[in-house]
Design a protein around this nucleic acid. Structure first.
Lengths: 101, 101
DNA sequence: TATAAACGCAACTATTCGGTTGCGCAAACT
DNA sequence: AGTTTGCGCAACCGAATAGTTGCGTTTATA
């Protein structure tokens, strides 16, 4: 099963979880309180986010706190930036072509 | 069926298509040449990309050229920026808290 | 005019996804 | 000690995904 940041942010619920965790670390239960679905459903999303290394975990007694790893979010930035460069270079190439004519 | 940019970039093949189209507009056939899968499979991805408005279409005779709509890519930037602000504000709030002590 | 090329669309298939319910276990109250 | 709480894990289910093959249609070419 391939897991990456892009898959992590594909689901709207997962994006909401990421946003909540950006605000503060939370337990699955606390997170589930913000959604209509069950705790187990949220835990499944958390599992995916953990596999993508978007989220890290820290146990405290019987409670399990999840933290957002903002570092992983940079992967998206990197991809976007690379795409932007290709896109811009394309126009440069067109400029060069036009200058030659 | 919900369609947005985030779903568009979730699939690695689709990201590759986006990258290729960033370089230059192409036909489904030309795109398929860069992959192992069939033209129909690529066309399916293109259909999804079109529904997400990531790609626009222009027919020329019997050939169908697809163009990247970079505007849609900004939606990702916007989401990332909003997340980054929440993340940074969080530390500001922590600073405020510490200053109060 | 016959043939080949480029394409979209439909049907089918296996796998993954997002969700549910129902456990069992360990930590924390009472 | 007994009960409640928080959690992960497994089984199950319907829907969506990503891919295939097989058409029909339109446009170009011989």
């Amino acid at each position: 099963m391939r897991r990456d940041v892009f898959q992590a942010i594909a689901d709207p619920t997962r994006r909401a979880i990421i946003t909540l965790l950006a605000l503060q670390a939370m337990t699955p239960q606390a997170l589930a309180g913000h959604f209509d679905s069950t705790r187990q459903a949220i835990s499944k999303h958390i599992k995916i986010l953990t596999e993508c290394e978007v989220v890290t975990q820290k146990q405290s007694g019987r409670e399990n706190y999840y933290y957002l790893n903002t570092e992983r979010m940079k992967d998206i930035d990197i991809w976007l930036e690379r795409l932007r460069q290709i896109w811009e270079t394309r126009f440069d190439q067109l400029d060069n072509l036009l200058n030659h004519l």
